[in-house]
């Protein structure tokens, strides 16, 4: 077990790579459909979802490592309920009942006694065990502290409390922080310290909250979770800075990411800006618009990859071509191949 040998892992080890790697973020639903599994199995069966990712990696020849994360992470783990995707148009689990409904619930909610059996943790663990057995780099499930807090009570409730009843919002974040630190510890205890912690923060995007609220409600707790992971011996943290976070970028520079970190950006953030602010300490990844990957003409997609590679290629700690958010499960296979082709043809180093 340990850090793998793909090009992204080589960048983490400070090794030279021959070309810009391609790492499609959150590809397991696309991968599962590609091998005949259902969308639901991409989330409900850790072993199948990881195998599908590894097979997709073999088929398309991309870099990176399997990743188990999903939007409403935290809801089920704290006693709420989620529904796995089914039907033609669903692509990810949905929270159907939050663990916190009333203000009173905030003060009675507790971090699960046994994190290893909470909600989707056993599924994530099965996913990581499969990755480790295949020699791939292991990564924790999503440890985004603000997004997880929103999944305990709903983002709308958390948002209102941030202004009107901040003590309730802070309590949600404390619970989220303690749970995530415990989860990362479980992964370290199981796989050792040569793993990555993963963090995605879609709910912290400026489409949702201000930089001022980021500073008060995201920054301190993220520093605590990241610092705890680094104290456990984890060397690299991969963070998906989801959506439009242009107003938050200066705050992100204050959060320790390891040496180097891995930072992935949405198409809303200019890669030059990302490199300028965060490229000295982290590998920069991004940021092809998911709608274009799914709906675009291959020529337009190739052009978008060209622009991303041109902007990112000179990043001091390295650049990885990636989707700007979760890889669209209904992407035409040729479009994904186009991304790999663009990196091979335009990303030689």
């Amino acid at each position: 077990m340990g850090i793998g040998n793909d090009r992204v892992s080589m960048l983490l080890k400070g090794e030279r790579v021959d070309m810009v790697p391609v790492f499609p973020l959150g590809i397991r639903a696309f991968a599962a459909l590609g091998v005949g599994y259902t969308m639901g199995e991409a989330y409900s069966d850790g072993e199948k979802s990881c195998r599908a990712e590894l097979w997709a990696q073999e088929q398309y020849g991309f870099d990176g490592f399997p990743n188990f994360a999903y939007g409403p992470f935290g809801a089920w783990e704290f006693g709420g309920e989620i529904k796995f995707p089914e039907g033609e148009f669903q692509q990810a689990p949905m929270a159907v009942r939050y663990p916190v409904i009333s203000e009173e619930d905030v003060w009675t909610l507790r971090v699960p006694d046994d994190i290893s059996t909470a909600g989707a943790i056993p599924i994530g663990m099965a996913h990581s065990l499969t990755a480790a057995a295949a020699g791939a780099t292991v990564m924790t499930p999503n440890a985004g502290v603000f997004t997880t807090a929103g999944n305990l009570c709903s983002v709308q409730k958390l948002a209102r409390w941030m202004i009107k009843k901040p003590s309730l919002a802070h309590r949600m974040l404390e619970l989220s922080r303690d749970f995530l630190i415990g989860m990362v510890q479980l992964w370290v205890d199981t796989f050792g310290k040569d793993i990555l912690m993963y963090n995605a923060e879609p709910s912290a995007a400026n489409q949702v909250i201000s930089a001022r609220h980021f500073e008060e409600f995201v920054l301190p707790y993220s520093i605590e979770v990241h610092s705890a992971a680094l104290r456990m011996g984890i060397k690299h943290i991969m963070t998906h800075i989801c959506g439009d976070q242009n107003l938050n970028l200066d705050h992100w520079t204050k959060i320790p990411m390891g040496d180097p970190g891995l930072l992935t950006f949405g198409h809303e953030v200019d890669l030059h800006t990302a490199i300028e602010k965060l490229g000295e300490s982290s590998v920069i990844m991004g940021n092809v618009e998911p709608s274009l990957i799914q709906n675009g003409h291959p020529n337009d997609l190739y052009d978008a990859c060209r622009a991303a590679i041109k902007a990112g290629k000179g990043a001091p700690r390295g650049f990885v071509l990636m989707s700007g958010c979760g890889f669209p499960p209904k992407t035409p296979p040729y479009n994904f191949f186009t991304m790999v082709k663009a990196a091979r043809e335009l990303g030689k180093l």
């Binding site: 948002a159 209102r160 941030m162 489409q207 949702v208 909250i209 201000s210």
Partner: peptide, 14 residues
Amino acid sequence: RQEYFVPELLLCAD
């Protein structure tokens, strides 16, 4: 103009 965000909007709506 990104002076208000979702939390402020929700409370204005209330």
